[in-house]
Amino acid sequence: MKARELLIAISIALMVLLLAYVIELGGLGPLAPYALRDIARAYLEYVYNPWNVTASSMALEAVTAIVWDYRGLDTYFETSVLFVAIVGVATLYRGYRELRGLGGVGLSEIVKTSTRVLIPLILVAGASIAIHGHLTPGGGFQGGSFMAVLMVLLVVVFSLDYAFEKGLTSSRLLAIRSAGLVGILLTSVALLIAGVVAGAGAYVFQNMAREGSDLSMPSWFLDRPLGGTLFLFNVFESLAVVSGLTLTFIVLALRKEEVDQALATGEWCE
């Protein structure tokens, strides 16, 4: 046993050493090619730049600004892919029924009571991460995932029966998920619609005023930058993610009786 542990330790040390050696020799290429550094510099210069609003996101968090503004379309399709994946999971089990009273009792009363106290705390921490997504590291996806932890806890600690009883049903979760996605869609075309109505030029995924369009999302809220669409995207994304992940978990946690019929017939049955 000792020799085995020694071998593992040596091989890990060797891996670190050799990797460092290869990087030092330039075997993986220069870490950040000079051609790319200008782009990074430009992002940092423009992410929050009140003197050059037409190129700025008016947000302090460069990653969120890139993800939801400079390459917003990309992220839109990313979040759609997650949605499709969740729909896929639900479709695999199509026709399942949520049954009550299957006798799930969950964990002990101690765990249940402690978890109860955590309900508002985990939710508000997730909300905080989503709300501040354009100011500090974090964002809609991170905040939503954070909140989804609570939903998983509820199902494990209290049982699926309890979750259904408290209204965490598949259809409702899917509705919240869709509402979040519709919110994201509306946010991305909000200025375009405003432009059409007002007869002014505007773009899809427009955030601040751009060249050829004076329309702009609000850039400040009280005493901090709001980042316009970034804030809205983060809030809607957190809703979409928490409901989507919860739905997936519930489907995966379904009990035999609930999926039996679906698996037997293989088709939707009402």
Binding site: P120, L121, V124, A125, A127, S128, I131, H132, L222, D223
Partner: peptide
């Protein structure tokens, strides 16, 4: 009160932006 005070501590909220949205 429980939720909001946890939010303030967790966020380190001191700006009216954070306090209002929280």
């Amino acid at each position: 009160a429980l939720t909001y005070s946890f939010y303030v501590v967790f966020t380190g909220a001191s700006t009216s932006f954070s306090l209002a949205l929280g």
